[in-house]
Nucleic acid binder design. Structure first.
Lengths: 209, 209
DNA sequence: GTTATATAATAACCATCGGTTACTAAAAGG
DNA sequence: CCTTTTAGTAACCGATGGTTATTATATAAC
């Protein structure tokens, strides 16, 4: 059996991943050390570097499936033909912010660094997914604003920017929650919802004027 | 002369402060080490701990005067009786975001941690100033919305929250700028301005309905 | 002016971090 | 059964923020 060793390795790699996932979620990326992860997974901290290039790579590998899930959920919301476009927009935004708050350790590392123009590297996979998520927000807003199709494309881009500021502001405001996350979201998500409704109302008013 | 030693000490403390201020502004709080600051100031890194409790305390001491300046500038804008309240609101918000982007190393540490309820400490001085700044944003918005005084206080608070999300979102979106800060602000401040105008238009539309 | 005392400043040190390297142990292949 | 390959680790590296034991010196007292 040539599989014996590889299988064990694969199991160890998965154990590291699982341990890191739990620890990152519990205490945040920065606060968790490679040695802690190793201890929780049951190997020496140097072994982790056999499976993952470094600490950030480990985070990226953990984050990608979660990001893909989020991507799919946002797509599902967008695909609902029967729902009111404004309600879809709100739900899409909420999917996004709930993810960011739930996975704050992903968020800070994946979204904090802006797109690097200076390097020849083709960007990190996670950053590519992030850009796709932004596209979904953009599309949801455009669908909620049918009837304003006449204006210049620049105006539409600026509207999306404003929406994005609000969503991003919500996340960054509550990302350092002390209360349990459930309570924070139950209390504050209505603020965001109302903010989006108000902002959209302003967009409608502006384009009518 | 009993002043000789104390004076020299005071000079050294000021040199540390000045060096740290420049280094934090240039490369960010996290990236700068105490040993670097010491080298730039011309003392050993241990001496810094004679003047300042630790690295974060050093940052706080540096930040407070800047925050007070910002506080005053926001107050000045608010005091202008002749200007259009909406323009005042936009200027107050811009003072705030320009400060946050210019002093990003202050920002991340001072504003990232939410108000700590768990400790008996009476909060950090910097956090107290921060809350005052939020109050200015709130007042500027209320002044820009005269005529909607009839509605419940909760609605007014929620409007301020929405404004705050947008402002905060702008800052967090551009706080990791790669381009020179001047260019970033010149390009992106109009986005914020337009976002605020749209949001306020939505508030007016909502309260009229 | 000499000596004693308070204190400013530092060198040496500590535990810890992310990451590398030289080595060991054990499974795979003949 | 022996050789080769490879998974895994102990020891190490340079660096961090922070502490402590020690040294140097300006002041005060005689």
């Amino acid at each position: 059996m040539t599989t014996t060793r590889k299988k064990q390795t694969e199991e160890m790699k998965a154990a590291v991943r699982s341990a890191a996932e739990a620890l990152f979620a519990e205490r945040g990326y920065q606060a968790v050390t490679m040695r802690e992860i190793a201890k929780a997974a049951g190997c020496s901290h140097t072994a982790i570097y056999l499976y993952y290039k470094n600490k950030e790579d480990l985070l990226q590998q953990i984050a990608i499936p979660s990001l893909m899930d989020l991507n799919q959920r946002m797509l599902d919301k967008l695909a609902d033909q029967k729902a009111d476009p404004l309600e879809i927009l709100i739900e899409v935004c909420e999917e996004y912010v709930v993810f960011c708050l739930t996975n704050s350790s992903f968020y800070t590392v994946l979204f904090a660094g802006s797109v690097r123009v200076d390097e020849k590297e083709p960007e990190l996979e996670a950053n590519r997914i992030r850009n796709r998520l932004f596209g979904h927000l953009d599309r949801a807003l455009r669908l909620a604003l049918t009837g304003n199709h006449g204006d210049e494309p620049e105006a539409a881009i600026n509207r999306t920017r404003a929406l994005f500021f609000m969503v991003q502001g919500y996340v960054s405001t509550y990302s350092d929650h002390v209360e349990p996350l459930d309570e924070v979201m139950e209390r504050t998500l209505p603020y965001l919802e109302q903010g989006i409704r108000t902002l959209v109302a302003g967009m409608v008013a502006h384009t009518r004027a």
